[in-house]
Simulated assay, not measured.
Amino acid sequence: MSFSLPRYQEPDFSLPTFKNAPCARFEPAPCDGVAPDDFHATSIFPEYFQTNQGQWSLPVCSRMDCVVVNLDGALSVVEPRRLRQGDMVCVGRHENGEDGIYVHSEPFPAPPGSTAQFAFRTRMTRESSFSIDYDELYSLLRHERKHGSIVWVMGPAVVFDHDSREALEHLVREGFVDALLAGNALATHDIEASLYRTALGQEIYTKQSSPHGHYHHLDALNVVRKAGSIKAAIDNGSITNGVMNALHDKGIPFVLAGSIRDDGPLPEVYADCYAAQDAMRNIVQKATTVMALATQLHTIAVGNMTPSYTFTKEGQIRPVFFYSVDMSEFVINKLANRGSLSARSILTNVQDFLVTTARGLGI
Rank of each mutant, 00 (worst) to 15 (best):
G73Y: 08
P11G: 10
D249L: 13
N52G: 07
Q285D: 11
T357V: 15
D249E: 14
C31P: 04
H212L: 04
V243C: 03
G315M: 09
L140R: 04
M327H: 04
V89N: 02
K231Y: 04
H214P: 06
M305F: 03
G183P: 15
S328D: 09
L5F: 05
V331T: 03
G362C: 04
F176V: 07
F45K: 05
A199R: 00
D352I: 06
T42S: 05
S324H: 07
I239K: 01
A187K: 12
A301W: 08
F3G: 00
A187F: 13
E27R: 15
D32N: 10
L256A: 05
D352T: 13
M154Y: 15
R197T: 10
G183D: 07
Y196F: 09
P319I: 06
S209K: 13
N349R: 04
G362N: 01
A119M: 00
G362W: 01
D65F: 13
V255D: 09
S105M: 11
D37V: 11
I230A: 12
R25F: 12
E314T: 10
D12F: 02
H40K: 00
E329W: 04
K286D: 14
M88I: 01
A185G: 02
P80D: 15
F321G: 00
A336M: 03
G92I: 02
Q296L: 12
P253H: 02
L335F: 06
R261C: 10
F130W: 12
T299S: 11
H212N: 15
N337Q: 14
I191L: 07
P80E: 14
S139W: 00
V284I: 08
L58C: 14
G303T: 02
A116T: 00
G97E: 11
S43A: 09
S76L: 13
L195M: 12
S238M: 14
D161P: 11
K250P: 12
T348S: 00
K231I: 00
